[in-house]
């Protein structure tokens, strides 16, 4: 399977490089940014692409931490672009400058854009003043994923944590985000996205009062 994938990848790239015919359809960059109706991505298509991403990363890494770092990196690139896109599509766009405001925005609007529903809860850490948690009881990313026993510390929602991290970094809230499995009997796939904000963000928050 791996060799087949690599061959397919090479051939498609070389074919597109060799081809001199103009593109028949519209490029992604020419599509209307405002097109919202009927633009949901099919869950099966996303599950397939995400599965291929995971298999590709798995063949490149040698540990769980590196695995999560790579997933986070891929998600980070998505999150960076998401700030402008989600805000632009809002009916009444607003520029968030406070920590709670941007996190509530992620909890509601960004989650709605990504998964069609709000996140299940947004919490502030009791021990550390710079840590916040977004909880999703049934993350869509893990719907078709069963992690084998030898790597049960891995949570593929590291990709989602990367999206959040990229989003917050682009919105001038530098932070580190990580995904943790905190299962309950009712929700075995319950995932907590832990967001640790940069000290500069906390300092700015104190100045703003």
């Amino acid at each position: 399977m791996q060799s087949t994938n690599k061959e397919l990848f090479r051939s498609s790239v070389s074919e597109s490089l060799k081809s001199t015919a103009p593109l028949m359809g519209k490029s992604v960059y020419e599509q209307n940014l405002n097109k919202i109706r009927n633009s949901d991505v099919n869950l099966s298509s996303f599950a397939f692409i995400f599965s291929e991403l995971i298999q590709r990363i798995q063949s490149q890494v040698s540990g769980i931490q590196e695995f999560e770092e790579k997933l986070n990196e891929h998600g980070y690139r998505v999150g960076q672009k998401l700030v402008e896109l989600v805000v632009w599509r809002e009916r009444n766009p607003k520029r968030e400058t406070r920590i709670l405001g941007i996190l509530q925005y992620i909890h509601s609007s960004v989650w709605k854009y990504l998964f069609g529903k709000h996140a299940d809860s947004l919490e502030k850490s009791k021990e550390a003043s710079d840590e916040y948690m977004i909880v999703d009881n049934n993350p869509l990313l893990n719907k078709f994923i069963s992690v084998p026993k030898e790597m049960n510390q891995l949570n593929c929602c590291a990709y989602l944590a990367g999206i959040i991290e990229g989003f917050l970094d682009s919105a001038q809230f530098p932070c580190k985000a990580s995904a943790h499995s905190v299962p309950l009997s009712q929700y075995p796939y319950r995932t907590v996205i832990l967001i640790k904000l940069d000290p500069s963000v906390i300092a700015r928050e104190e100045v703003l009062g």
Partner: peptide, 11 residues
């Protein structure tokens, strides 16, 4: 289908 969609399972 749900089981074979798992990216960590073999072919």
């Amino acid at each position: 289908t749900h089981a074979v969609c798992n990216p960590f399972s073999m072919d």
